[in-house]
Design a binder for these strands. Structure first.
Lengths: 360, 360
DNA sequence: GAGTGGTGGTGAATCGTTTCAACGACCGCT
DNA sequence: AGCGGTCGTTGAAACGATTCACCACCACTC
């Protein structure tokens, strides 16, 4: 079953040429004579030869992979970003090693070690902590780094981000326009830059509307997932005055809040309006279709990867850039107070109703 | 900025020892004298030395990574499986290269090439096609392969799967028990084994209930995502007789069907009942909480990775195994006909209602 | 004082590929 | 015949880490 590994040397001896010629067939087929090339290719096929990337990289000094470190692969936001990255990388003939830091500095650090040992061409990362210390070292040692979904504080590196402050502003401005007086912000941990900035945008919108930012009821969560959203909703239920509008730092939280509120008999949006962030696919398919702040996720990943590849391959003339995209608000039922005043089903299907009449 | 790369040789000369000693410090620190070890470690720190994995692997003959090829990373089913794989791999000190075949044989093939060139220790894969040809070659050349979410047809390899036939049976048995007469199955493409088997289970349940399997209305989709589900619902809308119950091959399809049906004014579950498959997190948070067939996703990934690692590291005494988990049905509103006969909100929140009275 | 054993360290060979200077064969030209 | 120029191929030297046979040294023992 386990045949001995076949190397370029075996191919060479089978084809009756030198290893250099085999290498030429693989890398510069045009400079090899037709007959020879055919003989070598036949040998490769017959032996089932497969190049050893480790050996190539050892020689070349760098590998043909890039690293992508995200906070949570289970979050659709990041899977879409990852697809964007993958597309760019594929175009450049690079593979992507996807790592999941789980917002855990230790895990992030382990993955960075691993990527550096793999001599990846560069790293795309949404860093866990605010300490850029570790990343600076990496950069000093020659690994290009592009910050993902996080703006660089200086211009010594590239970054691709979405204006989260603006996103927070859009959300809260919308809720204020709907006439809400008691607003809450759900998000955390606050060590995550995106959470901070979305909250900051929310506060700015309050100020801009002449409201006291201190009125914004803040609920800090321990993570950005559905379970944490449910917890937050449970805590909100006891708050006085009870907020009538909740802006969540991402859609998973918002879905959790929505679920738990509904379970407790709170009607959305009549009793409480909810706005999420990211506009993941499931936002539109939620129990109450979710108003959300949409980010160009795929484009974010694509652009970041392109910048990284440029930095990694360009002849040292690379100009660092800070790309910032603007998000947009997508209004759906979860924050739309006009709902309920109009019929829920605008286009009832007569045949459907006829097939199985409503039991009530 | 770009310092020259520092190798084990540089460390050796700085510490005034041979390269062999540096290697010993890294790999067998106990056999090196204390003073020497400290001198070497200091040099490593001062120079910022990082091991070159390519070189290690070249020598070792194999890398410390495994490959994971899934049909779609954006599908929560696979991200959960991937997390299980990652956990196992981490425990064994291995890295995971996550690849996305997008159900495209060409893409799958490219990734398999890449993984083989990387000399991964093994590959976990949910294969696109029914042709196991390519995989057999890989196995012959010494790369262990474990089939994921797909049962092996022979015992020359390991596989970890969930009994999809049983899952299909559970779903349809449940729908029949609810008194439905006109059932539909939505899924595709049928080249995907899981789709086939779930359908087969559905047919078996029909037969077991003394119904003609030919009555099951089949709608083939081009993919297993939300958009394909919407399309399927549009096609179902025109069907005669209009099915009153739909079993979908996965939750994404079911969510799509749910969305499109609702848009058309079809009430779920009163007019049409829906059952999905996978029980992803969003199933419970859907517009109408979705009845679904739950699979042990994380466990699936963990187990598969453990089998692979065992096969890759064990001293050739490896026994191939076919692990099959049983799925379970989780009944929620989308298929529960008793709904609507009872109040929608069992525990109405008085203070919530008081804060913002229902406009109606 | 020759042998034995243990400790700590060395240095060269090795993994599989790429690269490049060098070489032989052949051709055409003077 | 001699020279220069292509063309195709060769062979050996890298790349960086690991491994292993071997050596130097010291401490003991009989």
């Amino acid at each position: 079953m386990n045949r001995p590994p076949v190397s370029i040397r075996d191919v060479a001896s089978m084809a009756g040429v030198s290893v250099g010629t085999v290498s030429n067939v693989l890398n510069r087929p045009d400079i090899v004579a037709d007959v020879t090339r055919r003989r070598v290719l036949d040998a490769i096929r017959d032996l089932g030869f497969v190049r050893n990337e480790s050996a190539r990289h050892l020689r070349a000094g760098h590998s043909r992979t890039i690293g992508l470190v995200v906070l949570d692969v289970a979050n659709p936001f990041f899977t879409d970003v990852a697809r964007g990255v993958e597309d760019s990388a594929n175009d450049a003939g690079l593979a992507v090693i996807l790592c999941n830091s789980d917002d855990d500095p230790a895990k992030e650090s382990r993955y960075l070690d691993l990527l550096e040992e793999q001599r990846v061409q560069g790293i795309l990362i949404t860093p866990v902590t605010t300490t850029t210390h570790r990343l600076e070292h990496l950069r000093e040692r020659g690994t290009p780094i592009v910050l993902l979904d996080r703006r660089a504080t200086d211009d010594t590196q590239c970054s691709v981000a979405v204006n989260d402050v603006l996103g927070g502003e859009l959300a809260v401005r919308h809720l204020l326009a709907q006439g809400h007086k008691h607003l809450a912000f759900v998000g955390g941990p606050f060590t995550i830059r995106q959470v901070q900035e979305r909250q900051q945008g929310a506060l700015q919108a309050m100020r801009a509307a002449g409201r006291d930012p201190g009125e914004l009821h803040i609920v800090e969560t321990s993570a950005l997932n559905v379970a944490a959203g449910r917890d937050a909703a449970a805590r909100l239920a006891g708050a006085m005055p009870r907020p009538t509008a909740v802006f969540c730092a991402n859609d998973l939280l918002a879905l959790g809040v929505l679920q738990e509120m509904t379970r407790r008999g709170v009607r959305i949006p009549h009793d409480v309006a909810i706005v999420g962030y990211d506009d993941i696919d499931f936002a539109a398919a939620a129990a109450v279709p979710l108003t959300s702040v949409r980010q160009p996720r795929h484009l974010l990943g694509r652009t970041a990867a392109e910048l990284l590849i440029e930095e990694a391959t360009e002849d040292s003339s690379h100009q660092h850039r800070q790309v910032v995209f603007d998000p947009e608000l997508v209004v759906r039922d979860s924050s739309d107070r006009t709902i309920g005043r109009r019929p829920r089903h605008r286009r009832p299907s007569p045949e459907g109703a006829a097939a199985t009449p409503h039991p009530a």
